[in-house]
């Protein structure tokens, strides 16, 4: 498989949120505003790519029997790095994302890519896979959070984009909105991919 295919696979065909539906907790929780969604997406890209690189480099040294604990420790180390960096340099975002930054460690997406890709492929391919899956995650986060912020607040990046007479649909940024809008988004993706096939 060439590099471009690996990348495109992550963004579209096997999009982690919209198609595979893994790593939903943080997706539902932090997409109340576009900025939070993008912040979380970038944090996941960093952890995913970092752990893919290290796991791919170590794949000849890690015995098969203990690979899962080894993956978890490597992922936890990268999560801690991202956690400390965000605490130091983007404090407001760090507070908004809260418990969901340390929870990147149990994001099934990252463990799944370690097991399914990085442990079996070379470093360069693993970097491309990490970036592709990460960008796919980011795209889905942007879609979901922009719809939620637009409907629920009438803003994008905190800037008003609708006239003042717009009455915000509060439900969109409350918990139920996360479930309903993501459900409809997945339905739309299903519809589009079915139409493409037909």
């Amino acid at each position: 498989m060439n590099k471009l295919d690996i990348f495109k696979n992550g963004v579209t065909k096997e999009n982690p949120i919209l198609v595979q539906q893994v790593g939903m907790c943080a997706t539902l929780a932090v997409t109340t505003s576009l900025l939070n969604g993008i912040g979380m997406g970038i944090a996941v890209i960093a952890v995913l790519t970092g752990s893919n690189i290290v796991i791919s480099l170590l794949r000849k040294f890690i015995p098969d029997e203990v690979r899962i604990p080894a993956f978890v420790i490597i992922i936890a180390a990268f999560t801690t790095i991202v956690d400390l960096l965000m605490h130091a340099y983007t404090f407001a975002l760090y507070q908004a994302l809260g418990v969901f930054i340390p929870l990147i460690v149990v994001n099934c997406l990252i463990l799944a890519r370690a097991e399914a890709f990085a442990f079996k492929n070379g470093v360069v391919d693993s970097i491309v896979d990490g970036l592709g899956m990460g960008v796919g995650y980011l795209v889905a986060m942007i879609l979901l959070s922009s719809v939620r912020e637009f409907l629920g607040n009438g803003t994008l990046f905190g800037i008003n984009v609708l006239p003042a007479s717009y009455e915000p649909m509060m439900i969109a940024i409350q918990p139920p909105g996360a479930f309903i809008i993501l459900g409809l988004l997945i339905g739309l993706v299903n519809y589009l991919s079915r139409r493409k096939k037909a």
Binding site: P176, G177, G183, I186, G187
Partner: peptide
């Protein structure tokens, strides 16, 4: 249901409606 909404899509919407009740 419409074919595209079957499975996880409608499950998420149902979860959303339950979430409204818990709200």
């Amino acid at each position: 249901l419409p074919e595209s909404l079957k499975g996880s899509a409608i499950s998420l919407v149902a979860a959303g409606l339950m979430s409204i009740a818990f709200l």
